[in-house]
């Protein structure tokens, strides 16, 4: 899904959204739009390549390094190519109490990957994340904007099958 540096540009629809995002912040404070724009970019390209980050920097009239230092600080941004679906699995205590570790082991085995890896068919990337603010509905993982809660091994089978189609 990556594009070469010469073609790095938001789609027209996203460009409009990006301009609206920048306009929300006070005059001269356009840097505030950095996190929203990085999310928008990741939505389009799947991950944040240096070329994409440079593009965002130009758009906000800030140094490229200011984009890199932010993109590397926050865990939601993927700095390397990822599979079609990124599974962000909650590994924190309350989810573990609900059987999160067992389900996680099963998921890893099923996909044949460890945390941080992508399946050979490029369909799934597995990432470990901390508490997703859904502890009472654990175990939990997230794929893009969708929360999957009350996970069991059976539920994992269903979800993976559905997304593999």
């Amino acid at each position: 899904m990556t594009e070469t540096s010469t073609t790095v540009e938001f789609t027209p629809e996203r460009l409009t959204i990006a301009q609206e995002m920048i306009a929300r912040y006070p005059q001269g404070r356009q840097k505030s739009a950095l996190l929203p724009l990085l999310h928008l970019a990741q939505e389009q390209w799947g991950w944040l390549s240096p070329e994409v980050m440079d593009y965002i920097g130009r758009m906000l009239d800030i140094q490229a390094i200011e984009v890199y230092e932010v993109a590397t600080f926050y865990t939601m941004f993927h700095l390397n190519p990822v599979g079609k679906h990124v599974i962000e699995y909650c590994r924190t205590g309350p989810c573990c109490l609900m059987g999160g570790e067992e389900v996680y082991d099963y998921l890893k085995q099923k996909l044949g990957v460890k945390a941080g890896e992508t399946t050979a068919d490029q369909k799934f990337t597995l990432k470990e994340v901390e508490c997703l603010a859904a502890c009472g509905m654990g175990p939990v993982f997230q794929i893009r904007e969708q929360y999957y809660m009350h996970l069991t091994k059976e539920r994992v089978d269903e979800i993976i099958e559905e997304l593999s189609r």
């Binding site: 996190l35 600080f73 926050y74 939601m76 994340v129």
Partner: peptide, 25 residues
């Protein structure tokens, strides 16, 4: 204005949150 974070518990601390809202770490 609704502003998204980027995945960082520390941004719940109020001054970290303000830094983050300004587009910084």
């Amino acid at each position: 204005v609704v502003h998204p974070g980027g995945g960082a518990y520390i941004c719940g601390e109020e001054t970290a949150l303000l830094e983050s809202l300004e587009g910084k770490r």
